[in-house]
Nucleic acid binder design. Structure first.
Length: 271
DNA sequence: ACTATTTCCTGGATGC
DNA sequence: TGCATCCAGGAAATAG
């Protein structure tokens, strides 16, 4: 499932493939489509626009668009949800099931959005810079990071998943960060000591940077913009390892459910 | 203002 | 083999 490192990897790949290309026409699938903006507005905003850059914001892919001669700051925002894929292919390539949008490029290639589970979302933002409400975990300073958890009764795991606080962390990297920080997922966010928060801050940055370097985690069917799997799943220490032995102390990894999300941790290493 | 719970959605795994 | 059921989870909606 695409979280920050996977989206970062995809956005980099797409940026390399389509920056400078021009969107000639757009097709958006019929009726209940995963859209946040009306199909007509998406088509109107994209058609004729030049892709100036592709980048990541939180878990969103952002296509910065440029109009001929215009100064408008339009953007095409793509959220992949759980199973969404965004990739470039030739126009002759077979159109897979669950294809919801196709942008035809001047280079005669196509940019396609495919999402079986339909948790993904397409959106356009016009004349303003798209911003996530949460902080970027790799840019935020320690003091602001620490402040996010102050006074919060919610479990630290839930706080890490809350995109309004930090944008981009999902289930995998929340669990992996908490393991490295030695903090149990059920701990109330406000109960973390300054040292806990310090270790968590360092762990989040470490895990995300290592995962980006590994091209993300391919747990279900995630592949990057070039169709290649990432390999950070081999570095997971707790996620998906229920019953396996802790790499650090040998105790069996536990799995519990917090707010409906499975959470993995080492009962011996995490306090 | 917060927090917790429910809902959306389909493919793959599991169970009988 | 086949059919039903469960589960995964990001974020929005709903309830408390």
């Amino acid at each position: 499932m695409p979280e920050l490192p996977e989206v970062e990897t995809i956005a980099r790949g797409l940026s390399r493939q389509v920056t400078g290309d021009v969107i000639e026409s757009v097709w958006v699938g019929s009726k209940p489509e995963p859209l946040k903006s009306p199909a007509r507005e998406i088509a109107r905003t994209l058609e004729g626009a030049r892709i100036a850059d592709v980048r990541r914001a939180g878990k969103h892919i952002v296509f910065d668009l440029e109009r001929r001669g215009g100064k408008a700051r339009d953007q095409w925002i793509v959220h992949l949800g759980m199973t969404g894929r965004m990739f470039v292919c030739g126009a002759e390539a077979e159109i897979p099931k669950h294809t919801h949008a196709i942008a035809t490029l001047r280079s005669a290639r196509e940019l396609r959005f495919v999402d079986p589970r339909r948790f993904g979302r397409l959106q356009v933002v016009r004349d303003q810079r798209f911003e996530t409400s949460g902080r970027e975990p790799l840019d935020v300073g320690f003091e602001i990071f620490a402040k996010l958890f102050r006074g919060r009764k919610t479990p630290i795991k839930s706080a890490l998943l809350n995109q309004k606080l930090l944008a981009g962390i999902g289930n995998i990297y929340a669990d992996e960060s908490l393991f490295r920080a030695g903090v149990r997922p059920r701990r109330r966010a406000a109960s973390l000591t300054r040292n806990d928060v310090r270790r968590l801050y360092d762990s989040v940055q470490q895990v995300l940077n290592e995962a980006i370097a590994a091209g993300g985690s391919s747990v279900s069917d995630y592949v990057n913009a070039d169709g290649e799997a990432g390999f950070f799943q081999f570095a997971h220490r707790v996620y998906g390892r229920e019953g396996d032995l802790c790499v650090s102390c040998g105790a069996p990894i536990k799995r519990i459910v917090i707010a409906g999300r499975s959470s993995h941790y080492c009962p011996k290493c995490q306090k």
